[in-house]
Simulated assay, not measured.
Amino acid sequence: MLHIKSFFLKLFLTSIAVLLISHFILALASYILFQTTLATMHLHSDLSQIAGLFALASLLSLTMTGGVVYYLSQRMTAPLREMKQVALRIAQGDFDQRVTIKTHDELGALGETFNYMVQELGSTDQLRRDFVANVSHDLRSPLTSLHGFVTAFLDDAIPNERKRSSLMVMQEQTERMIKLVNDLLDMARIEAGQLEIHSVRFNVSELVRQVVARMEPAWVKKQVTVDILSDEAQDIYVYADPDRIDQVIVNLLHNAIQFSSPQSSVDVIVQTRAQAVIAIRDHGPGIRQEEMASIWERFYKADRARTQRAGTGLGLSIVKHILDLHHSPIDVKSEVENGTIFTFTLPLAPDRIKTPDRP
């Protein structure tokens, strides 16, 4: 059986077929009517009778052709009606719906695209549900802790020798909530296209040292060693947004510390090639190859078993968006049980750029 892969060709051929059918029916009806009538007609009979015969033949032709066109129209538009019904069910939240693909033309391709869209919507909806659950937990845990400590302080239930450690815990929980809220705000700005990049000339080597020093309480608490490795005799200057690059390094370093085992090490590598190269390497559990393509997605977590410690899954997505705005690529290599290394590049600051250094 011949399979036509173009919907427009099908439509064109159908129109030609309907036209031929209508002419054939008209000719056949005219022939039958005239055969039975001409024998009783005189040569000079009234022309109105002939006109009536043509009108009757045309009516029969239109009726039969209309039936054929209706049948063909119903058959050709059935996929579109099915898509409409499926779309209505999807709008009600049922993302398990799929359209049946029976052809290989443009409508078949549209059906495949439609099914792919539904699959992606279902995945996004599941990620949203997971995100709401994770954010709810990440907010409730520190709030519960803060509420407990505040109540204990008000009731004078905390001895003087424990007040400082209790305040440090409260500070840690507050910082945790601030980071979560900042990530959510950044993601909202990214989705709205409002995240702006303000590039200046700055010392990226010094920025790395500042970030590592600032995050010392986190890696000391995890019993992890963070080393800065560089074979450059002088500091490296780049042309980028220092605040956003600070955010990138913080997120990547936090991620490396989070998944590192106690007594292990994390390396922050700063080098120059054609551009400045910054790499952050851990010796943690690594990422499975089948998950590598998904780590940049919003709310995605490769380690489902450590959901409560791994945050909301926004960090790497924000990193990718920031570097995309800088037109800077980022690469990730990982081996299970052998660690992961994230590497990104930044343009070197030419000497001719007179923009002042970041204070």
Rank of each mutant, 00 (worst) to 15 (best):
L2R: 12
H3E: 15
S6K: 14
L9P: 02
K10E: 07
L13V: 13
T14W: 00
I16S: 09
V18P: 00
L19G: 04
F24P: 02
L26D: 05
L28R: 12
S30L: 13
L33F: 06
L33Y: 09
A39F: 12
H42G: 15
S45E: 06
I50N: 10
A51S: 08
F54K: 00
A55Q: 14
L60S: 03
S61A: 14
T63E: 07
V68I: 14
L72W: 10
Q74V: 13
T77Q: 10
A78R: 12
A78H: 10
L80E: 03
L80C: 10
M83L: 14
M83V: 08
A87L: 05
A87K: 04
D94P: 05
D96L: 04
T100H: 11
L107P: 11
E112L: 07
E112N: 09
Y116Q: 14
Q119F: 08
G122P: 07
D125R: 13
L127A: 03
R129S: 14
A133V: 04
H147D: 09
V150T: 03
F153W: 04
L154W: 01
D156N: 15
I158V: 10
N160R: 08
E161I: 11
M168Y: 12
R176Q: 08
K179S: 13
V181D: 13
N182G: 06
L184F: 01
L185Y: 12
D186Y: 10
M187D: 10
E196C: 03
E196I: 10
I197H: 08
I197M: 06
S199P: 10
R201N: 14
F202V: 02
N203W: 05
S205W: 06
V208N: 12
V211E: 05
M215K: 13
E216V: 02
E216S: 09
K221L: 08
Q223A: 05
V226F: 03
D227A: 12
Y239F: 15
I249Q: 06
Q258M: 15
S260L: 10
S261M: 14
Q263M: 09
Q263D: 11
V266Y: 08
R273V: 09
Q275G: 06
I278C: 07
P285R: 12
E291T: 08
F299L: 00
T307Y: 02
R309T: 08
A310V: 02
G311F: 11
G311A: 03
G315V: 09
L316P: 00
L316M: 07
L316W: 04
H327E: 12
P329R: 10
V332T: 09
V332F: 05
S334H: 08
V336M: 13
N338D: 11
T340M: 00
F344T: 04
L348A: 07
A349H: 05
P350I: 01
P350S: 11
R358S: 05
P359A: 13
